[in-house]
Design a protein around this nucleic acid. Structure first.
Lengths: 234, 234
DNA sequence: TAGTCACTCGCACACTGTACGACAACCTCG
DNA sequence: CGAGGTTGTCGTACAGTGTGCGAGTGACTA
């Protein structure tokens, strides 16, 4: 078996005080959460750790690998309820919410997660627990895979789209209302000939952004779970 | 109304032979489809057009704006059936397939689309047609928005995840089988303690990648549409 | 005390997006 | 015809980027 970033292990007790992979990952996570992908550079990260720029490369093969580690870190934050406690259906609902909020906490995720498969240890553990949860629904083994996959895709897709909106608000530095209204104005000016879009856009203006987005999310997830439920033992 | 990249218009008949925004967008699309986001640089793009590097900046404010234009171009490729022809349900199915295949044709899309809202003209036109389609199902106006949004999120999320897998295969330059089997081996080695994941991963090894991914997609979309249908006039 | 391992880091290379300002080709007006 | 303005091109330059290389340093082992 070839060595990978996941298998590599270092001596437990470093001789003197040195950088460590854990420390690098932790600091990188802070930078990423705070400044996004564009704000993370190896030089800045090293400076923040009080180290020389290229010292990081002893602990991590490339920046891309570092990002792999960070993504897997996020997968470790998601909790998947045991089906015994609440049944698979509400378990799946909780799982969905947990997954969504992890994405919202780490808004850089969508930008990078779709450029690589997730095969780190936390991703595997997450998958395992997910399969246990969906396995309790009474699906065939193949359907268990499919059901879990579709829920994850839906949740990640929705949360990613949410992030796109929320980040633009944040980056503009302006108030949510003023930004939303400008975006809508812009959209309206482009959508002059589209009455339904106009109407739909106008409907959104009057609502609180947060509850609007949460409502969207729950509606679709619920519908999807309904559809999945109807497939049990069919 | 402020000028935006969407509103800007140029003189219809350029005096001499010059670059044009259309030409730039078209060439950029080729580069992007062929080499991905990392392969698109303003200098390379200009060279390909036989122009100086910074000439592009007369036609397009920034690279980011160029990407906005490219994304909107993709939205223009998606077709949304009229509900009269096939009913909303199978229309939605067709819509989903069209959207998915656009993403697969432009695998760079997931990497960039989640970093900005889509408010270009083609996005608006797409939205309008989508609302017409889902409007035919008998939802309340609010539900029409929600239904369309959830379907788009699901499809984009699933297709994006697909792209992650497919691109890794392509980039590795090796055969699909050899790559899949190595990925699986790697995954297995990480997932030693996870019997369900092991089993699930093993199940995939024996199947054709293409039909596997298409099957996943259809299963979830179908379930979601079932769930939506049950909400009509409830 | 000598040697080896674990780790740090300065330098350099090839590349990026894009601001700036000089320049040229064409159009319009007198 | 000539003058001025508009449209468009492009060379140079700046401040960054990821990372390969090789020299150096501190600590542990024999």
């Amino acid at each position: 078996m070839r060595e990978t970033i996941w298998t590599r292990q270092r001596s437990a007790a470093p001789a003197r005080e040195t950088l460590s992979r854990e420390q690098i990952v932790k600091t990188a996570m802070e930078v990423l959460d705070g400044e996004g992908v564009a704000g993370l550079s190896m030089r800045k990260l090293a400076a923040r750790l009080g180290a020389g720029a290229t010292s990081l490369y002893w602990h991590v093969p490339t920046k891309d690998d570092l990002v792999d580690l960070l993504i897997d870190q996020v997968w470790g934050e998601i909790d998947v309820p045991e089906p015994e406690l609440a049944g698979w259906r509400s378990g799946a609902l909780l799982f969905g919410h947990s997954l969504r909020s992890a994405v919202l906490r780490h808004p850089w995720l969508p930008e990078v997660m779709y450029t690589r498969p997730s095969i780190g240890p936390n991703a595997m553990a997450l998958g395992e627990r997910g399969l246990v949860l969906f396995g309790a629904a009474g699906f065939t083994p193949r359907e268990v895979d499919l059901a879990m996959g579709s829920v994850m895709s839906y949740v990640l897709g929705t949360a990613s789209a949410e992030v796109a909106t929320r980040e633009m608000v944040r980056k503009s530095g302006r108030s949510e209302e003023s930004w939303v209204s400008e975006l809508l104005e812009q959209a309206q000016s482009v959508a002059t000939d589209y009455p339904r879009m106009q109407e739909s856009v106008r409907r959104r203006t009057s609502v609180n952004l947060d509850s609007e987005l949460t409502g969207n999310f729950v509606f679709g997830l619920d519908a999807l779970l309904d559809g999945l439920q109807s497939r049990v033992m069919k």
